[in-house]
Amino acid sequence: MHPADTMGQTREGAQYGFAFLDEDAKRELRRSIFKAVCIPGNQVPYASREMPIARGFGTGGMQVTLALLGPDDTCKVIDQGADDSVNAANIRNFFALTCPGVTGTLRTEEASVIQTRHRIPELPLRADQILVFQVPYPDPLVVVEPNAAKRRRMHGRADYARLWVKLYEDMVAFDEITISHRYPTRINGHYIIDPSPIPRFDVPKLHQADCLYLFGAGREKRIYAVPPHTDAVPITFTDVPFAVESFRDKTTGKRHTCRRCGADDSFLDEFLDDDGARIFQCSDAAWCDMRLERLEAAE
């Protein structure tokens, strides 16, 4: 179909091609995505077009998603696990406006493309689903090497000793590794990626997954990927095991549970209620709703 035939009316008088970006931009994005998938963990540069929102608000993820979406797709957008945050809702509305035919959904299992900020859904993703991450800082080496040219050479020869030195310094100071999010993770035995600010809890989900993970950094103009069934190993010492958040109560030693659905195996957000008491709730809203539905159906 000629691109002109898929023109959608977005605002009064404003005509855009399907998926907002022009066809050349989408082609370039797709080529970069292919390269990223072919070289797991390698940061592939791309042009990063201007988006109608500011860089730093998910423009990298949006461009990757727009390059993927076709009229038959179902799209879900989450921000810290929630579908209803301002950022996620606006991006979902934008997709609905600019991609005629694409249906939005809040349910993880219905989506063919999921754009996310800071979380991987609790429900394991299938081979026919793609998860697109919004990435603020694509390069894990940026904390140890300010020179970008040197960083690219370091990636090329897998020269990552200085990342481990950071872990060593952590162990010396705190007797544990204190990285809470953006945990450096080695992909397919070579490149180490910054998996975007997902919590440690989500890092093991990258390993040997069924689905494709794509990472888009708009401001830094990089795309990288963890393809399905690929090794993704968080870096650590041989005698210091990688550990995820335990959500154990410090006094009782018991794991906190979600106050809505009672889940004891999900990533929890911590709030204070009106009386100042600490309460916990699933960070993944869709997961929590699905469990509630199941519980109601069982009753």
Binding site: D159, A161, R162, W164, V165, Y168, E169, M171, V172, F237, T238, D239, V240
Partner: peptide, 16 residues
């Protein structure tokens, strides 16, 4: 200690 650890890590010693 970290400065020395860096050299050891470069030579693939990964036990803390």
């Amino acid at each position: 200690g970290g400065n020395i650890a860096e050299r050891l890590l470069m030579s693939d010693e990964l036990s803390y």
